[in-house]
Design a protein around this nucleic acid. Structure first.
Lengths: 214, 214, 214, 214
DNA sequence: TATGAATGAGTGTTCATTCAT
DNA sequence: GATGAATGAACACTCATTCAT
């Protein structure tokens, strides 16, 4: 992914690695605080306790610095979600998986709200980041679509529905609700993650026919 | 709202009005094509067939030009939605209203997809536009929350649900699905408005208990 | 002096003359209030109740408008000073003339303080106005030098002094003291014209040997 | 006084100091030659042998560059006047002090005539510089007022006179005469500093009663 | 005469990136 | 590796003046 200037397998010294981390952390702070367009290299260097020249020793240019920041964020969030299971034999197991996944997603989003806002911002002005964001979303949708298809095979979800689109609808609902609650400072920000999760679960369960409607 | 330099009720001559429209249309094209930050005044003037100075005869500055563009878009979209009814006595009537509203929304979004992307972009970097976008969204959510509350009173929707949050969840689902389909160039862009609307309707109906799940 | 566009002896209609006066008065207000460089033609036209184009009907350009304003001011001040006598046979008569001249000057300056500040400002950046101001000052110095020479001939002032330079020294003292008192907003602004005049008289009288020093 | 971008006590390298001086000297030349408002940053940079960007490395903006120039001039002039004495016990000593002070002032003015014109110009359009000029003048007047008061206590100058106003009158006479002689290009410019000083001394001495009038 | 819309040249300032030390 | 001074392209905005109506 060429997010640094370390060619091939050349190892960085511990000191160099520490420097890189310091710059990365500084960039994350500054990008998140000022927004990508307002963030100045000089501020990042100052925060990192080094000169601008040194920043260029470790990162090709400003946009690569942003890449590295976003990649770091994504790894942190992926790490949290790695253990998720989306399968299960009984309806209750499926509901448990969905429920857990939604809680994980909402919680992750809450913890990195500022970073998610940053991602959103850069995706709108830079084609490269736009594509990255799209692929991330696509993976999310695809995973859920697979689950829906499984439920259809088991006869739980109606076969008539398009799994991809249904997945997309339910997925964007979760991600956008999270965005509104944690980034926008909406009326939604007054709810707890648990409350949001319950609503989201409800929509999923009813839509997928996992809950009896009296 | 002072989106132009015409003070108070001073009437514009037909020629001046035409000029203003030409500049507005040019700005809309350029903003939508290049994005707000990359758009150059010189390009807008060139597109409008006048000098930069003339642009400043009609608009205070660059940001006011954007305001005028967005206001125009909003009026176009509001105009289309004016006729919407969100009430009804029978379940079928309610479903009809929802169905119609969703189709109108998706269709409007499709017709102004680029402009919606522009709105999204500027909302992320300018506090004023951010607030405008938020208020627009809040109105939308509120209207739907009212409808849900009515359904609860009639005993159609369960009383236990929070109408505001449910409305928010369902509303963002529609708007974000539209965004993905018409702006992002997703796999969703291969669906027709009708197909999107059917899925969206389905989620609404099931969630609100308006449809029997076999 | 070609301060207007009325070629030769072509008479202006009464209406045109009124227009010209209205514009001139507006220009005077705006120039004096905003300073020459900050004054905008549009403001002047607005103040005059006409369009910018009309201003150009009566005045060649911005600088000619200023010329006309300054000329008007000068005529007003000259008018006041026309009756001054600077001669006299006895020491008391001479002192009376000087005393009267100083009071007239200070009073005139006070009445047109803003205009004098304007003159000073434009003299510093425009060669034409600079020359005008210089000539005005030179006339003032010359008149006083003549008086000093007369006093020397009568044996009242010592013959050894250079009348021109002495006149210059005493003249600039008066004009600059007036400037400080009426334009600058100095501590000097707390004195009355009479108090300033007494001090100024004192310096003149003593320097010219018109007063016995006990 | 924050007239540069060197924050706090951060030391400048010799090379940087030389650069700063080069830019300062260039700015002084250009400001003095073209006047503050007509001076272009590009000209200053060209004169300094660097790019415009480099100018902004050392100075916040155009006005700070002017500040630095004026401060430099003032320091040069203050340096020259540091040794002045304005006291003395005998009449002859007092006259000597006054005489010396006047010569110093006139000579300083002559050496920095163009810069004094610049100061005058910017004082008339910028409130900050206006205030600085006023304070400078006030100090000058105050110092001389103190001397006059001392002379009154000793019974040399009449007690009836207002020391502040008398000081102001005599001070502005010197400064304005200098201005006329060295900046204006008056007939006064044909006199030597010595000749100007003699006239100025004469007015002071006679006004303060330090010279017997035959 | 009066209008006021149109013109367009002119310039201070920013900041990512480079490279000599 | 580290530094930070130097670069210079890029751009919004102003306003006196003109001239078609």
């Amino acid at each position: 992914m060429a997010q640094d200037r370390t060619q091939g397998g050349a190892q960085e010294s511990p000191r160099a690695a520490a420097r890189r981390q310091a710059i990365l952390a500084a960039a994350r702070r500054v990008f998140v605080h000022d927004g990508y367009h307002s963030a100045r290299l000089t501020d990042i260097a100052a925060q990192a306790g080094c000169s601008v020249g040194t920043v260029y020793t470790y990162f090709e240019d400003r946009s690569e610095l942003l890449s590295a920041v976003l990649e770091q964020v994504e790894q942190e969030m992926r790490g949290r979600n790695r253990t998720l299971r989306t399968d299960g034999d009984t309806v209750e197991e499926v509901k448990g998986s969905i429920s857990q996944a939604n809680r994980f997603y909402l919680e992750s989003f809450r913890k990195n709200a500022k970073e998610m806002a940053l991602m959103e911002q850069v995706a709108l002005s830079d084609p490269v980041f736009h594509r990255q964001r799209q692929e991330r979303a696509a993976r999310f949708v695809k995973r859920n679509a697979g689950m829906i298809r499984t439920l259809q095979d088991k006869g739980i979800v109606r076969a008539g529905e398009d799994p991809e689109m249904l997945s997309a609808a339910l997925s964007v609902m979760v991600s956008r609700l999270a965005y509104n609650a944690f980034v926008e400072g909406n009326f939604l920000s007054e709810y707890t993650v648990e409350q949001l999760a319950e609503t989201v679960d409800e929509v999923w369960f009813r839509t997928l026919g996992l809950e009896k409607v009296e």
